[in-house]
Design a protein around this nucleic acid. Structure first.
Length: 674
DNA sequence: TTTTGAAGTCTCTCC
DNA sequence: GACTTCAAAA
C-alpha cells in the first residue's frame, strides 16, 4: 500500500517515504506525529528492511507499546519483530547480552531512583558528612548533581556553581561521596539508571569490535520525543548510526519539558549540524483540537523563546472557547470538575475520554477523595509511584536480599523493620554478613540485642524457608511474596496507618509477580517500567473498563482526550514556585502548560481556586493569583466562568453562574420573627 | 547506648 | 504526608 493510500498529508508523506540518511521531523502537538512514525516504520518494512533490524526508541513504555501495536496492525506479524522500547530498557537488554564482554559482572540488579538516593545517603553517612555544623547537601541533592553530571557531561564543580553555589565550598567532599557511591555500586553489583545509558554509550565507543558489533545490530533507528533526550542519549545515537546514518528523529521543541533530567533542547536544534545533510520536515496541521483550543495554546506559547517557528492550524470548524473557571477554593474546584465530568458522561462521553491534568501528583488529593466517595472510577498517572510507597519497597527489599545478598541497602531496610532494631544493630548485622561473604544463613549467627531477639528469630526462620525449595520445586516469585508476607503483614499493620489499602497493594504485587518467570525478571521489570500507581496495577487486568484519567502534565504528553481539565492554574502551583529559578525554567513551565492545553480535542477547562488553603504554610507566594501564563492575550481566547456549588440538600451539583449567592439568605426570614 | 516517639521541615516533573 | 532532627525512655 502506498503512503498516499493512508490519507497522509504531503508533509507526512514526505517524512514517511524519505529514503536513507538523517531525517528531522518537527511535529507540533496533534499533528499526527505517532501516525507518521508508525507509517514510516511500515514503509521501511515494505521497502525490504528486516523488521528486527529496525530500532524504535520512545520515551515511555506506554508509547512504545502503542507504536509497536500500530506497526503490527499495518504490516501484520512482521511488525512484531521490530525492536522498540525506552532508551533505558534498550540499554538494559544490550547490557544483559554484551555487558560481560565489557567487564560488567552478569546478574547485576537495577537501582531505581529511590534506591540510588538511599545508596548515596549511605555513602554520605559512612564518610561522616551531614553531622557537621556547616550545611552539607542532602542525599537527594547529591544524587541530582551526580545524575546531572553523568547525563550532561558537565563538570561537578560547574553544576555546583550554577545550581547550588551554597555548596560550592564542599566540592571536594561531594566528589568523595560520588567516588564512594560509584565504588559501592560496583562492589554490590548494582547498576543505576544513569549507568544504563553511560555503559551503553561506552560500549559503542569502546575500542575493538564490540562497539562495531552493537552498532551493526540495526539498519534504521527512529527516535520519538527527541526534544527530551540528553547529551548522553545523543551520543548513543551518533554511535549507533555512525556507519549507515539512517536516523529519524521526531520532536517538538515547544514540548521540551524534561530539562530537570538533563534533556536539552539543543539536541533537536543542533540536529542538522550533528547529522550533516539532514532532511527537515515540519508538520503543522493539527488534527486533534478545535480552533479555539489551538488559539489559546498558540497564544500561550508565542512568547516562549524557541527556535523552530510554527503555528498550528486546523481545518476543524466550530468549538467552544476554552473556559477559564474561577473557584472559591480547592473543594469548589473539585466539585466543578466532578459535576462537569458527570454531565458530559451523561451526554455520552466515556470517562476514559476525559482527563484532569495538574502540575504535581499531590495536587489531585481532594479530587481523588471526592471521586472515591462518589464511586467514579479513575486511573492516576504519574505522581507518587507505586514503587515509592514504603510498604512496597519493604517487600521488594526482602526479594532483593534473596536475589542479591550483597545488596546492603535492602538488608538495612529489612533489618530496620524489626522491632528493637535501629541503626546500630542493623549496621552490626550487615558488618557480620560482609565478613561471612554475604551468606544469608550467616544472619542466624548474629546475636541481636535482647529487645530484638524474637524478631531476629522470626526473620532467620523466614529466610531459611525462603532459601529452601518449595513443595513443588523452586518457588515462583508470587509464592515467595506470599511466604514473606506471613511475617511482614503484621509488621505493616503495626507500623503504618491505613493498613487495608496497603495490604491490597501487596495483593496486587503478588498477583503481577506471578506473570514473571524469575525473580530477576520481575525486579528488573519493576525498576525499568514501574506501574504508575496502585490504580494502574488494579486496572491492569481490565484495561477495557471505563475510568477517568488523572495525570500530571508530564505523564500526559503524547496523549489526547475529548475533554481536558487543567486544575490548580495558580501562580506558584502551575508554574511551580520551585521551578522558577531562571528564565529557562520559566520557559519550561510554560511549555509544560502548553503540553497540558494541547491534549484537548473538543473541550478545555482551566480551573483556578481563588483561595488555596493556608497559602502553603504562609511562606512566600501567599497571594493566590492566576497562573502568570494566562495573561491578557491568552485570556482573550477564553470564556470566563465561576464555579458555584449548589447547596440544596442531597445535591452537590455545580452550576455555572456569574451571579453571587447569599447562603444566609436561604434561612433568613424562614422562621418568621424579627 | 540505642531506640523510639514527637516536633519540625520541606514538599515537582520521570526512566 | 513523608522525612529529618531532637529529646526522652528503656
Amino acid at each position: 500500500m502506498s503512503a498516499a493510500a493512508h490519507n497522509l498529508n504531503p508533509a507526512q508523506q514526505a517524512a514517511v517515504t524519505h529514503g536513507d540518511g538523517p531525517l528531522l521531523i518537527i511535529a507540533g502537538a496533534g499533528t499526527g506525529k505517532t501516525r507518521t512514525l508508525v507509517h514510516r516504520v511500515a514503509h521501511l518494512i515494505e521497502r525490504g528492511v528486516a523488521p528486527q533490524r529496525i530500532l524504535l526508541l520512545t520515551f515511555t513504555r506506554r508509547a512504545a507499546q502503542e507504536m509497536l501495536r500500530r506497526v503490527e496492525s499495518l504490516t501484520g506479524s512482521r511488525g512484531a519483530r521490530v525492536h522498540g522500547g525506552t532508551f533505558h530498557a534498550t540499554a538494559h537488554r544490550l547490557l544483559r547480552s554484551y555487558g560481560a564482554q565489557a567487564g560488567l559482572a552478569p546478574a547485576f540488579t537495577i537501582l531505581d531512583q529511590g534506591d540510588a538516593i538511599d545508596l548515596v545517603g549511605i555513602s554520605r553517612a559512612e564518610l561522616g558528612f551531614g553531622q557537621r555544623k556547616s550545611r552539607f547537601p542532602r542525599k537527594e541533592t547529591l544524587h541530582h548533581v551526580y545524575s546531572r553530571h553523568v547525563n550532561t557531561e558537565i563538570a561537578v564543580g560547574d553544576i555546583l556553581r550554577d545550581e547550588f553555589p551554597q555548596f560550592e565550598e564542599h566540592a571536594a567532599d561531594i566528589n568523595r561521596v560520588f567516588a564512594d557511591y560509584t565504588a559501592r555500586k560496583e562492589r554490590r553489583n548494582l547498576v543505576d539508571y544513569d549507568d544504563l545509558l553511560l555503559f551503553w554509550a561506552a560500549m559503542l565507543d569502546a575500542p575493538g569490535d564490540l562497539g562495531t558489533r552493537i552498532a551493526a545490530l540495526y539498519d534504521h533507528v527512529l527516535v520519538d520525543e527527541y526534544q527530551d533526550t540528553n547529551l548522553l542519549q545523543a551520543r548513543i545515537l551518533r554511535g549507533l548510526c555512525r556507519s549507515h546514518r539512517n536516523i529519524t528523529v521526531v520532536g517538538d521543541d515547544a514540548q521540551s519539558i524534561y530539562s530537570f533530567r538533563g534533556a536539552t533542547v539543543r539536541n533537536i536544534l543542533d540536529f542538522p549540524e550533528q547529522f550533516a545533510g539532514a532532511t527537515r520536515v515540519t508538520l503543522e496541521q493539527n488534527y486533534r483540537s478545535t480552533q479555539p483550543i489551538l488559539d489559546v495554546s498558540n497564544a500561550l506559547i508565542e512568547h516562549a523563546r524557541q527556535r523552530y517557528r510554527k503555528r498550528l492550524f486546523t481545518t476543524r470548524g466550530g468549538g467552544e472557547p476554552p473556559a477559564l473557571v474561577a473557584a472559591r477554593d480547592e473543594h469548589e474546584q473539585t466539585l466543578f470538575v466532578v459535576d462537569r465530568i458527570l454531565e458530559m458522561h451523561e451526554q455520552g462521553t466515556p470517562l476514559r475520554e476525559m482527563a484532569v491534568l495538574f502540575r504535581a501528583g499531590y495536587m489531585s488529593a481532594d479530587l481523588e477523595i471526592e471521586l472515591t466517595n462518589r464511586k467514579i472510577p479513575f486511573e492516576k498517572w504519574g505522581g507518587l509511584k507505586f514503587l515509592e510507597a514504603a510498604h512496597v519497597k519493604d517487600v521488594l527489599a526482602f526479594l532483593r536480599i534473596l536475589e542479591n545478598p550483597r545488596d546492603d541497602v535492602s538488608w538495612y531496610r529489612v533489618l530496620h523493620l524489626l522491632p528493637g532494631v535501629g541503626d546500630v544493630t542493623a549496621r552490626a548485622a550487615v558488618a557480620l554478613l560482609a565478613e561471612r561473604s554475604w551468606d544469608p544463613r550467616a544472619f542466624a549467627v548474629f546475636t541481636p540485642p535482647r529487645a530484638a531477639r524474637a524478631a531476629h528469630a522470626a526473620l532467620v526462620a523466614l529466610l531459611d524457608r525462603l532459601g529452601a525449595p518449595g513443595a513443588s520445586g523452586p518457588r515462583g516469585v508470587s509464592e515467595e511474596i506470599a511466604l514473606l508476607r506471613t511475617m511482614y503483614d503484621a509488621i505493616l499493620r503495626d507500623r503504618y496507618d491505613r493498613a487495608e489499602p496497603r495490604l491490597a497493594d501487596l495483593d496486587q504485587l503478588e498477583a503481577i509477580a506471578g506473570q514473571f518467570p524469575t525473580r530477576a525478571a520481575f525486579l528488573s521489570e519493576l525498576a525499568l517500567d514501574p506501574p504508575s500507581g496502585t490504580q494502574d496495577l488494579a486496572g491492569a487486568a481490565d484495561t477495557e473498563s471505563d475510568a477517568l484519567i488523572l495525570s500530571t502534565a508530564h505523564s500526559a504528553k503524547g496523549r489526547e482526550w475529548d475533554a481536558v481539565f487543567v486544575i490548580w492554574a495558580v501562580d506558584g502551583w502551575f508554574p511551580s514556585a520551585r521551578a522558577l529559578r531562571s528564565d529557562d525554567d520559566t520557559d519550561e513551565e510554560r511549555r509544560l502548560m502548553y503540553v497540558a492545553l494541547t491534549r484537548a480535542r473538543n473541550a478545555l477547562f482551566i480551573v483556578h481556586p481563588l483561595d488555596a488553603y493556608g497559602a502553603r504554610g504562609g511562606s512566600g507566594y501567599a497571594i493566590n493569583q492566576l497562573s502568570r501564563f494566562l495573561d491578557e492575550r491568552v485570556r482573550a481566547y477564553t470564556q470566563r466562568m465561576v464555579a458555584v456549588p449548589d447547596v440544596s440538600p442531597g445535591a452537590a451539583a455545580t452550576a455555572v453562574s456569574s451571579e453571587p449567592i447569599d447562603l444566609r439568605a436561604l434561612l433568613r426570614g424562614r422562621f418568621g420573627g424579627n
